[in-house]
Design a protein around this nucleic acid. Structure first.
Lengths: 191, 191
DNA sequence: CATTATAAACCGATCGGTCTATAATGAAAC
DNA sequence: GTTTCATTATAGACCGATCGGTTTATAATG
């Protein structure tokens, strides 16, 4: 029997995809092994702490990806460019609504309680980073806070609708609409 | 041993609450029995088809509730009154974000595939009912379609954020913001 | 040839689901 | 107004399958 050899950096995204498709409770070890092609032996070699450690490392991996590609640009770079980049990255990452947000999904059931700190941290940082970029772009602090919450919430809602209606166009309309509304708060009203 | 006797109309909301808290896969029969106080015997007496029948009947019950309290008023009654009623009912139903939307939660993982028809029907009907009310209130059809999608998506996103950040105020800000934006599309711009 | 990683048998616990015994209920018979 | 009794509903033992997790043996790697 042929054995394929992986390392941890390959394994995390593969397991992550199964959690995204099935949720924490739905992702049984046997589903993870069949869908990834990895045996239990490999899984417990990389994640001695089992399912909970898998999910924790996946959440950390997601957070790191968003930090590098979304949060830090928003916090650091020229704000309008960074916001445009955010919309591009979000559309690509969520595959136009065909892929869900694992952090948002975990928030909905009691899985939240296992990972409460990471989940709240992810959304808090995203909202604050976007808010800061809007303020640097000239928006008033109160308006920037409100519209940032609406934007991040709107993305999550768009993902739910895209899957519920099985229609990726609705996710793209959602983010296009949000991008347009955000643009009104930068540089005094025009995009 | 004392035995409490229920009928099906009592049982559906009790089981529904467990599905809401734990999700479809997380809601094991033993969790359902301990949290509701109902024995397996009672559960399978009311739902011979098991877990899947429980969830299907709960979804039908949710749909019926929204039909009577939200969709039909939007479709039938004076639109501005009906929209105001919608916001009141939504805030009460979701307990200001402390309670999630089961239909939206089911949409996120492969549970969707079991109940695809009911899930898409729920959101389609809600969006169309709101859109129709906005049009009757004087909104242009294209604007009404877009804002209706944003509103229903925004509610779902608000529920995710409320749980993720463990902060019910964010849900109330979300629906207040959406209500205000919707009001701009009725009667030519003022609320 | 030590280290790293894979495969799969194996474990007790829990899974969804079935079954049997019996308690509560309400209408008919008296 | 009791008594009777079929109906309705509850309790929990029980079933095979699957759960998350452990272990042992061994293949790939540098």
């Amino acid at each position: 029997m042929t054995r394929t050899v992986f390392e941890k950096s390959d394994v995390i995204p593969m397991v992550a995809e199964v959690f995204r498709e099935l949720g924490y409770e739905g992702a049984s070890l046997s589903k993870i092994t069949t869908r990834t092609g990895l045996s239990k032996g490999s899984l417990y070699y990389f994640f001695p702490g089992g399912k909970e450690e898998m999910a924790a490392e996946i959440l950390a991996h997601v957070e790191a990806w968003f930090s590098a590609n979304v949060f830090e640009p928003l916090e650091r770079d020229e704000p309008i460019t960074a916001i445009q980049k955010m919309w591009r990255e979000v559309d690509a990452y969520f595959r136009s609504g065909q892929r869900i947000c694992l952090v948002g999904a975990f928030a909905l059931d009691e899985t939240r309680d296992r990972f409460a700190a990471m989940i709240s941290q992810y959304f808090k940082r995203w909202i604050e980073a976007l808010c800061a970029a809007l303020v640097r772009a000239g928006a008033a602090i109160e308006a920037a806070t409100a519209i940032s919450e609406e934007a991040i919430g709107g993305i999550q809602g768009g993902l739910i609708l895209a899957r519920a209606l099985n229609d990726e166009a609705i996710f793209q309309r959602t983010i296009a609409g949000l991008a347009e509304r955000l643009a009104k708060y930068t540089q005094g009203g025009s995009s």
